[in-house]
Simulated scan of single mutants.
Amino acid sequence: MKKSILAVILLTFVKVTFAQYDPKALEILDAMSKKYKSIPAFEANISYTLTNETEKINEEFKGKITVKGDKYKLVLPEQEVINNGATLWTYLPEAKEVNIDNYDPNSDDLNPSKFYEIYKKGFKYLFLEEKTEGGVLCEVVDLVPEKKDAQYFKVRMNIAKKDKSIQSWTMFDKGGNKYKYSITKFTPSPSVSDGMFTFDPKKYPGVEVIDLR
């Protein structure tokens, strides 16, 4: 009896260990990544939800992201984040200020312009199940950071089984917060200029520029 219990424990341990780099999850993620890498630029309308059951938090916002290569512009109700691949601007309309910093790609695991590639470095991955979301059959994959001190302990991705497009992703932090981003509209290959990914203070009279570089 003791031997059979020990065997079950060992078998469970082996399954969990190898599931950390699940080949089925990798196949899904690679197909998803290939899809987005083939698109030179895209725009997406995003629904953003923050929930915390313990703190009774349930907030929802809508935003828009435009991506072109390594560049992106993320517009949310209370801020705009602009990145041209070298410089990062965070504009706060209510405060009438913009913070400028150098962009370090190595310190930004969750860069919104590279959300389809984050699994390739510093993450374990596991296929969970197939689940219908918004009428779309999705393959659910969990990404778990290899670093124990990472800001988020898990990222859950819902990827459409048919065309490998991302329907949503949810980030879980250690404080019990869940940040869910759902793509409500996707426009591939829009016409966007590089100037869109630079913040020009002259266009915002009265804005305070805080240069942190």
Rank of each mutant, 00 (worst) to 15 (best):
M32A: 12
S33H: 10
S33C: 04
K35I: 02
Y36G: 06
Y36V: 09
S38Q: 12
S38C: 02
I39H: 04
P40N: 06
F42C: 01
A44N: 09
A44E: 00
N45W: 07
I46N: 07
I46G: 08
I46M: 14
Y48C: 00
L50A: 09
L50Y: 08
N52G: 05
T54A: 15
I57P: 06
E60T: 14
K62G: 13
G63N: 07
G63D: 03
K64C: 01
T66H: 07
T66I: 12
T66E: 06
K68V: 04
G69R: 07
K71S: 15
K71F: 11
Y72T: 01
K73Y: 06
K73D: 05
L74Y: 08
V75A: 05
L76K: 03
L76D: 03
P77Q: 04
E78K: 12
E78M: 05
Q79A: 09
N83K: 13
N84H: 05
N84I: 01
N84A: 11
N84M: 05
G85H: 12
A86C: 07
A86M: 14
T87F: 09
T90P: 08
Y91V: 07
Y91F: 09
Y91G: 03
E94S: 15
E94N: 14
A95Y: 00
A95W: 02
E97F: 03
E97V: 00
N102L: 13
N102I: 10
Y103T: 00
Y103S: 06
S107Y: 02
S107P: 00
D108Q: 08
L110K: 04
L110S: 00
N111D: 10
N111C: 02
N111S: 02
S113I: 09
S113C: 02
F115R: 05
F115T: 09
E117T: 13
K120I: 01
Y125I: 08
Y125S: 04
L126K: 15
L126Y: 15
L126W: 13
F127P: 05
L128W: 00
E130I: 01
E130P: 01
K131D: 11
T132R: 11
T132I: 13
T132H: 09
E133A: 00
E133G: 07
E133D: 08
G134Q: 04
